[in-house]
Design a binder for these strands. Structure first.
Lengths: 212, 212
DNA sequence: AAAAAGTTTTACCATTTGGTATAATTTTAT
DNA sequence: ATAAAATTATACCAAATGGTAAAACTTTTT
């Protein structure tokens, strides 16, 4: 029996797909799904609209792929704790620092995600329940154990996470507001360092977990 | 010289305009500017598209008006402190409570604002610099005086505000995420009360301003 | 009552846009 | 080299959408 061996994707194709995905991410981030036209993405990627459609057969498919790439990146980078014995201070501090690094390095990804959530998570709803919720519940349990052990003061762990997420992502999603209010043309690495220090201190102190 | 006295707007007109603005706010909140069609707004308001255009001559005009109504509401309700001698605890606690009340009572307004900011504040940029920034700088100064007086621990006041804004607005903008993760079909008043208590305690403790 | 101003409806249109069909060209495997 | 597969370019289209023109109708003013 003869099996056709499908040609491996040319490196050119991989490169072009990445270029398209970056262009699409930027477009979706700044204009939303409806505000983004296939033609504008194609232009940004330097190809024709019809050629874009050859690579991604529909706008939905393109959007789904952009979301998937974002989630892969986030899931890969955003583990709250893989070490049961790490101290709350270590875990929270590095979590905040890494979250802020994502806001700094992938602001468009954060904005696409924000759009999706604000719009009611039409695409991600199922994924959130099936993947993010279990992870969330594990992390909540860990925080509860910290509380039970007296390592941090008692708080509602769920709201702790909502606060950390919101206050780290705001440096990506609402960066224009922060820039305008601080009189800057853009947020520099330095601004993120200050924010990381502020937030780490802030959260650790609020949790009574200053010392290690 | 004869001056035409323009007819006062009929009460019907005012009512209908409000109905349109509410419908538009909801549409812009859930679909963004580009994702919102004039026809869908008209349908929600129970009038024809052409009649909607009679009331608001363009989609831009409608969007601008929606934003203006939101800002009026926020500016009216969101004063950080009008009493120089109030204690930090009083000021911050009531600020957080009122911000959360806005997220609870006007989630669509919050989402429209979020869309606008994420998209780079194309409409609100000027307003933010001319109106919000001065107010922001006054509030920052007040916090700095608190620090100088030793009423709260030293923190960067700017980032304190970014954190409070982000973590209160997330209960409106990201409500679907919070719902899904907490296994609720919607956020109830009770959830907002818990959030208010959590955030107040959290922020006050982080600032070392627990006692009055 | 008549004029004027305000409101609603009907008919229509130009542009944008996501997408299809297909032909031409280039690249890869045998 | 050549067939097959992959890629790119050309031509086109149907639906959606923001908006215009103008007639018909209603309410208010004088």
């Amino acid at each position: 029996m003869i099996m056709k061996t499908p040609r491996k994707p040319s490196s050119n194709r991989v490169l072009l797909e990445n270029r398209i995905l970056r262009a699409a991410e930027r477009a979706f981030a700044t204009k939303g799904f409806s505000g983004t036209s296939m033609e504008s993405v194609a232009d940004s990627a330097g190809i024709s609209k019809q050629n874009l459609i050859y690579y991604f057969s529909s706008k939905e498919a393109l959007y789904h792929k952009v979301l998937q790439v974002i989630l892969d990146l986030w899931v890969e980078k955003m583990v709250f704790s893989d070490d049961e014995n790490a101290s709350p201070k270590q875990v929270i501090e590095s979590y905040i620092i890494e979250k802020l690094a994502l806001s700094r390095d992938y602001p468009d990804a954060s904005k696409v995600f924000a759009h999706e959530i604000i719009n009611g998570a039409p695409v991600l709803k199922d994924y959130m329940v099936s993947h993010l919720k279990p992870q969330f519940e594990r992390d909540v349990l860990l925080v509860k154990r910290w509380i039970a052990k007296g390592l941090i003061d008692p708080v509602e762990p769920e709201h702790l996470f909502f606060t950390i997420w919101a206050s780290t992502q705001t440096y990506a999603d609402f960066s224009i507001q922060i820039q305008l209010l601080m009189g800057k043309t853009k947020l520099e690495a330095d601004d993120f360092d200050v924010a990381a220090k502020f937030l780490s201190n802030f959260v650790l102190k609020a949790l009574g977990a200053q010392s290690d």
